[in-house]
């Protein structure tokens, strides 16, 4: 039997019984959410709140220390946190546009993929860039610290450290290991969180665009 012959019966069968009451529907308006858009929105708000909190915390730290190195370091990290928060706020705006309108299926898929990819990209950039930035700050500014902390003056070994080449090598290897570790961890974490869904959405978009 052809599809057209069963059309109305299939349609009725799919609808099933309308079992929800007005009270049920009313109760559903504010309850738990489980779509990818909701999950993404929750994550974005969380990331933004954390970035702002850390930004404020680092500004506080920068203000409370008299050591130039630490002051600069905390200020730079605070700026990075605020820039990240702004990037996240822009993404939230895009997600809101997506979920507050009933777009055609193809537009929703395209936009959601774009937003997810951008989010993953920004997140990855933030995590991975923060490490070399921190290393750079700690090595370069630390080396040029104009106000030497009092306890350092008692370190007799400081001069010998500066001349010992193996210590430099240790720091190089240590830095590379940390950067590589963070790089692969961030990649694995984001892949686990989003890549599967991005690929699923891409496959659906391909399917829809196929002639």
């Amino acid at each position: 039997m052809e599809l057209d012959e069963l059309k109305s019966q299939l349609n009725n069968k799919l609808s099933g019984e309308s079992s929800k009451t007005v009270q049920d529907i009313g109760g559903m308006l504010l309850k738990r959410r489980g779509s990818l858009v909701s999950k993404l929105t929750r994550n974005l708000y969380l990331e933004m709140a954390l970035a702002l909190l850390f930004g404020i915390f680092f500004i506080y730290l920068a203000n409370s220390t008299t050591i130039f190195t630490l002051k600069t370091c905390f200020a730079i990290v605070a700026v990075v946190c605020f820039v990240f928060a702004i990037a996240i706020a822009l993404l939230i705006k895009k997600v809101s546009w997506l979920s507050n309108e009933a777009h055609p299926l193809i537009t929703s898929l395209e936009e959601l993929i774009k937003i997810l990819r951008l989010f993953v990209k920004r997140y990855f950039q933030f995590i991975v860039l923060l490490v070399p930035v921190c290393f750079f700050i700690s090595y370069w500014i630390g080396y040029n610290e104009p106000v030497r902390p009092r306890y350092n003056q008692n370190f007799s070994s400081v001069n010998s450290i500066q001349t010992d080449i193996t210590v430099y090598w240790f720091f190089v290897v240590y830095s590379i290991a940390i950067i590589a570790g963070v790089f692969f961890f961030a990649k694995w974490y984001l892949r686990k969180l989003y890549l599967k869904y991005i690929n699923e959405l891409r496959a659906q978009l391909r399917d829809l665009k196929e002639d």
Partner: peptide
Amino acid sequence: RVALNTAITFY
């Protein structure tokens, strides 16, 4: 539109 968009992107 809303229902299909939600179903297709349902987590």
